[in-house]
């Protein structure tokens, strides 16, 4: 039996980090891990109240790499094991992550960027007044555009096309909504864009990339949007519009106004159920969902290429702005 007593281990390396607008106090015994996470940290302006603690003991004697994740949760505690040597314990009520990991995982920047940081924000988010929402987010001239839709609707493909068409990229799959100084703010992480295999038909640059098995078992291209497509990335923005994306079998595009009730129902359907022990988090989440559902919402049905949809959305945004300034 091996035992790790985190509170009795000297954790000499401390860092104040920021992920998707959430402040994180890291304590670890590994300088290398502290440096890896510092490079992934994105400082944001504003005084967001989202914060959590993370304490990690790195076992340099272990060479175990991260295996397929195994998640379980009861009441206020969630555990994530990436093999038996890499274990994370999330205490949602106390907003704390305790972990013991191998030196190999500590140095694996990709693991933190693509897996652990998004997981941490997803698990602890609700308790920190941050709601992970299944939608993409693009920004143009300080106006944020949230694009929701069921899996396979083409959010990521459209996000890339929009980023190539002049929008700034915030996120393609999960967007973290919180309030900062009373304003609704949407943040992304530095997670890669996940594009399904048919995206190669729209973006030739993917021909030189290979498909990978993502965390949910899907085959996909996982690429850095800035490096691969030369896109401009934004850390966060204030969302102005909420678009529900739907594909249609024939060429064309149409926008239909949606009620806040329909928007609210969709948003609730995409968040996870929380246990009664987290009733305070449920209330906080309700307030943010209410605020998001009050954004002007449209259903955008389109058929055609993502480049065609980009043109449609550009015109849509221009019209909305004209209405505001008229």
């Amino acid at each position: 039996m091996s035992s790790v007593s985190i509170d009795q281990t000297v954790l000499s390396y401390n860092r104040e980090l920021c992920f998707a607008g959430a402040h994180c106090k890291l304590r670890t015994n590994s300088q290398e891990l502290a440096n890896v996470l510092e490079l992934l940290s994105i400082q944001t302006s504003g005084s967001g109240s989202s914060r959590f603690d993370i304490r990690i003991v790195v076992n340099e004697l272990s060479g175990a790499s991260a295996q397929q994740p195994h998640f379980r949760g009861l009441h206020h505690v969630v555990t994530a094991s990436f093999g038996s040597a890499n274990v994370f314990v999330f205490d949602i009520l106390r907003r704390t992550i305790s972990a013991t990991i191998s030196g190999v995982v500590a140095r694996n920047s990709q693991f933190w960027k693509e897996k652990l940081i998004p997981i941490a924000l997803g698990v602890l988010g609700a308790a920190m007044g941050m709601v992970p929402m299944h939608c993409a987010c693009l920004e143009s001239e300080n106006d944020g555009l949230l694009i929701a839709g069921v899996s396979g609707a083409g959010k990521s493909t459209l996000s890339v096309a929009l980023a190539q068409g002049g929008f700034n990229y915030v996120s393609d799959d999960w967007t973290y909504m919180s309030q900062c100084d009373g304003r609704l703010v949407a943040y992304g992480t530095s997670a890669p864009v996940k594009l399904l295999p048919d995206a190669v038909n729209h973006f030739k640059v993917l021909q030189s990339r290979s498909l990978q098995t993502s965390m949910n078992g899907e085959l996909a291209y996982e690429v850095d949007i800035v490096e691969t497509f030369g896109a401009q990335a934004e850390r966060g923005c204030e969302p102005r519009w909420l678009i529900f994306l739907e594909r249609m079998p024939y060429h064309g595009g149409e926008f239909t106004s949606m009620s806040s009730t329909a928007a609210r129902n969709y948003l609730y359907s995409s968040v996870e159920r929380l246990p009664v022990q987290l009733s305070e988090a449920v209330e906080m989440r309700k307030r943010i969902i209410e605020k998001v559902s009050q954004l002007p919402s449209w259903r955008f049905r389109y058929g055609g290429t993502p480049q065609f949809a980009t043109e449609q959305l550009r015109e849509f945004v221009a019209h909305r702005r004209q209405e505001v300034y008229a």
Binding site: M1, V4, S5, Q8, V89, D91, R94, T96, S98
Partner: peptide, 11 residues
């Protein structure tokens, strides 16, 4: 078997 203790939580 691995045990992890941190504050009031032990797993």
């Amino acid at each position: 078997i691995l045990t992890i203790s941190d504050g009031v939580l032990r797993t």
